[in-house]
Amino acid sequence: MNELVLKTLVDDQDAQRILAAKAPGLRVESAKLRHHPFAGFIFEVPQLAGRSGQAHALVDYYSGKAFVCDPWQAEDAETGQVLDRVADPQWNTIDFDTARRRAKALLSTAALRRARLAWRGGVREKSSVAKVWKPNWMVEASLEKKSYRVMVDGLNGGYFIIGS
């Protein structure tokens, strides 16, 4: 079973800056890196006029959601960091084959939408990674004497407020 850890592109300083830019005065108390498991696929997607292209897709094991994403950058192997893995909540957890089906369905639908009925199909899986660990920052922050928990995406810096 192959695994891959995605490189953390947004470090804790960046995360702090992103949040502070949104809410001046916000102070980050702590930031902890957590890793969330995805199934990763690379597909060859035929397009029109004999062209084809490559597409990367990730499927969240825990929620079953699939999305198309940028090519992955893997973390160097020798960093030897210990991952703080997010535990399986067992709500909508899916297995690898389901994930593969969802990723493929996502790409076929998207391709058909764009190419219309002249599309000949033939989305082909080029490679897959059973577990792609995506980094997210769990940030404890405070603002005006209230504390908040915020998740900051370790790849693109998107954030989501979990609660206060």
């Binding site: 535990a87 209230k146 915020v150 989501f160 407020i161």
Partner: peptide
């Protein structure tokens, strides 16, 4: 009860990941 400026601009894709990480 979250600052208004922060409310806007959240990455909805992160919702379920954040949920689960917080759960653990």
């Amino acid at each position: 009860p979250i600052p208004k400026k922060m409310l806007m601009g959240q990455d909805a894709l992160l919702a379920s990941q954040a949920e689960m990480a917080a759960r653990g």
